[in-house]
Write a protein that binds this DNA or RNA. Structure first.
Length: 690
RNA sequence: GGCAAGGUAGCUCAGUCGGUUAGAGCACAGGCUUCAUAAGCCUGGGGUCGCGGGUUCGAGUCCCGCUCUUGCUACCA
């Protein structure tokens, strides 16, 4: 078999957030594939980079009062640390904000120009005059024009489902500055991808490059109609590369992000004395050299990687991907990751509590070639790791290595009834599963081998043989067989568990460097003093991680971060009165009958220091007499006529000055700091608060 | 509404070209073992393969209809 030359990428993580367990599905999936290819003796390079451009980065840098460059430099360090912790090993980790990338963007752009694919059109968008920037739909909030629901995003309403443009919103507000946006028109540049429709039909439907479901999806959603022009420019200010032949306009982040794959490769080539053409050239000459390009991505960015990207490469005379491997999303305990449930777990939080190898194995045992979502069931996670890795695999070494520490492995491989040979014969089947991204199938086969080996140990019972000094060599033989079976399994698991490989090399004092190490048993070599290879997972550790996840400052979305910082809100209030940890059920909540009420009269209470006496109306049903401890902050005459929120079913309470028939709701620390709640305009006395 | 992918043991999933009695792991029950990190081994219970029809000597597998779940998309196929 001749060695393949394979360039592999994972999607570029955005420099606006930390790596979390969802990201890791992809990086672990890719890393396993890369390690597998390398182990097979193929020439394989794993290329990635930070995706650094765009509005979100610009806004965040502004809010944090520093340069974009400083922000992305920090985030790069964080990303690299997380990847290292999880054994994700890139051959090159670049940045889209690099000179290589700029040069390539220029090059590809001029090719697209030459191919007459670029069109200019006016685009009218909301503009934030205060922040001096155009606003993407999700940076605008306002009232839905259809159902009047407030606080809706600029593209659609999640109350009534209506879709509209941000300009239709009632009372639109910029999420960046709080300013009222205005309509402005600017020139944008578009790629007329429709001109490649026929070619894309062929490329996507050939069965070579995509999973079938993905090909069907593209056919049904995009390729059945003319492809819309793709808006690839943004007017200044924008953190990115300025378009050379259109000053004042910048390439949209999704234009230069995938080019980052090539830019990062260029960086690698420079370090290793190779040329880009060795990997990215297309045409018959390049074809004969046979480099392959494999992208691993999540299903959310299918669109960019399977239509625009191949089209761009095609027209710019670069090699198009041989395969785009698309995976699903991560759920935790069957649900989308949630910050409040603590299941939105950052890589760093996980690594603080649990061994990264566990996650690598768990993901491997769940990943198949399809784009199904993957569920991280925390209980299954613990039992799977414990029973498969500790109970089956590592146990093989743990139950035999000690018996042969002194004598090492037998100098001739003993008769094992053909077990080693049979397992060796499965190498190609297991390899095919890895190569086809069916890690789940591979893990199943490998665990079958571990089961078999454990049965062998049981039958031979070396601990019994050991009691008879005459059978010493038999003990050595049994342990030699077992440790060789163990080592064979470790070779098969090497792409998933690199650390276990190192430990095994140390234990059996021989390197593991190639898939073929599974084909030949070790004989006559030494065995080091046994040390535990892997610890069991305690459910408590998992729980501790979840709790930590809840505590850890939840990562805010760019919009929220920008909106938050803008108000300068501090943590003092929360610190003074921490959140109630215990949940209340919806049933608990509905027991409290909150109502809108109008203050029809308010009086001082003679003899009371803190109380005001309020007469409240709920519309019908007469009035309520309520004593409220708000004298320090409100004057009676300021209250008359206004609306308040009343807990209407609070048990009546006899007080020194009369009976209080409810409680008005207020926030604040006390004293002057008391703030009554009032509903937005439109609420009527008697309305229940839900 | 449209498109796509699914529905197999309590849970997570295999099941090739239609072919013997439908499998694995986990969980559960009973037993064995005590080398091993409460690890290991054996035995067992547990299935209307979503429902209904069809093709066939034979259907989890192929065809049609229905139903439910998930994802995408949306009054446009």
């Amino acid at each position: 078999m001749t060695a393949r030359r394979i360039l592999v990428t994972s999607a570029l993580p955005y420099a606006n957030g930390h790596i979390h367990l969802g990201h890791l599905v992809e990086y672990i999936q890719t890393d396993i594939w890369v390690r597998f290819q390398k182990l097979r003796g193929n020439r394989c390079i794993y290329i990635c980079a930070d995706d650094t451009h765009g509005t979100a980065i610009m806004i965040r840098a502004r809010q944090e009062g520093r340069s974009e460059e400083a922000l992305i430099a920090d985030m790069r360090e964080s990303h690299l640390g997380d990847f290292a912790a999880f054994g994700v090993e890139f051959d090159n980790y670049g940045s889209t904000n690099s000179e290589h990338n700029r040069r390539l963007c220029h090059q590809i752009w001029s090719k697209l120009r030459d191919a007459d694919l670029i069109a200019e059109k006016d685009v009218t968008q909301l503009y934030d005059p205060k922040a001096e920037t155009f606003l993407a739909d999700r940076f605008v909030k306002g009232t839905c024009p259809k159902c009047q629901a407030s606080d809706q995003y600029g593209d659609n309403c999640d109350k009534c489902g209506a879709t509209y443009t941000p300009a239709d919103l009632i009372n639109p507000v910029s999420a960046l500055s709080g300013a009222t946006p205005e309509l402005r028109t600017a020139k944008h540049l578009f790629v007329q991808i429709e001109k490649l429709h026929d070619w894309l039909n062929e490329w996507t439907q050939s069965g070579q490059h995509l999973q079938d479901e993905v090909a069907n999806y593209l056919k049904g959603h995009f390729l059945c109609d003319p492809l819309r022009d793709w808006d690839v420019s943004r007017p200044a200010p924008y953190f990115g590369f300025e378009i050379p032949d259109s000053p004042g306009n910048y390439w949209y982040v999704w234009f230069d992000a995938p080019i980052g794959y090539i830019g990062s490769t260029a960086e690698w080539c420079e370090k290793h004395g190779e040329t880009l053409d060795d990997w990215w050239a297309c045409g018959p000459e390049a074809e004969s050299r046979g480099a392959e390009i494999h992208h691993f991505i999540g299903k959310d960015i299918t669109y960019f990687h399977t239509l625009f990207w191949p089209a761009m490469l095609k027209k710019a005379d670069f090699r198009q991907p041989d395969r785009v491997h698309i995976h699903g999303f991560l759920t935790v305990d069957g649900e989308k990751m949630s910050k409040t449930k603590g299941t939105f777990i950052q890589a760093a939080t996980y690594a603080k509590h649990l061994e990264p190898a566990y996650l690598r194995y768990y993901y491997a045992s769940k990943l198949g070639a399809r784009l199904d979502d993957l569920d991280l069931n925390l209980e299954e996670f613990a039992t799977k790791v414990n029973s498969d890795l500790v109970g089956k695999v590592v146990n093989l070494a743990s139950r035999t290595a000690r018996f042969v520490e002194a004598v090492g492995l037998s100098s001739v491989y003993p008769d094992d009834g053909g077990m080693f040979a049979e397992a060796a014969a499965q190498a190609e089947t297991i390899a095919a599963a890895y190569d086809g991204c069916d890690y789940n199938g591979a893990m199943r086969l490998i665990m079958g081998l571990a089961d078999r080996a454990n049965r062998y140990v049981d039958e031979k019972a070396p601990w019994t043989l050991r009691k008879d000094p005459a059978k010493a060599s038999e003990v050595q033989d049994v342990c030699s067989v077992t440790l060789n079976l163990f080592r064979q399994i470790v070779v098969y698991l090497a792409p998933v568990l690199p650390k276990l490989v190192q430990q095994t090399e140390r234990l059996l004092q021989q390197p593991i460097q190639n898939w073929n190490d599974s084909q030949t048993p070790l004989v006559g070599t030494g065995v080091a003093k046994f040390e535990h290879l892997m610890q069991r997972v305690e459910l408590a550790q998992v729980q501790a991680m979840i709790e930590d996840g809840i505590q850890a400052a939840p990562e805010t979305t760019p919009v929220a971060a920008a909106a938050l910082n803008q108000w300068n809100d501090g943590p003092e209030a929360l610190a003074a009165e921490p959140l109630v940890a215990e949940h209340c059920t919806i049933d608990d909540f509905v027991k409290v009958d909150l109502r809108v009420a109008r203050v029809v009269a308010a009086n001082e209470v003679v003899g009371a220091d803190k109380l005001l006496q309020l007469t409240l109306s709920l519309g019908g049903e007469g009035t309520r007499n309520v004593f409220a401890g708000i004298k320090s902050a409100y004057k009676p005459e300021d209250l008359v006529g206004r609306l308040v929120i009343l807990c209407a079913n609070l048990a009546p309470r006899k007080m020194k000055f009369g009976i209080s028939e409810g409680m008005v709701l207020a926030a604040g620390a006390g004293g002057k700091e008391i703030f009554l709640l009032n509903p937005d305009t439109g609420a009527k006395p008697g309305h229940r608060v839900h």
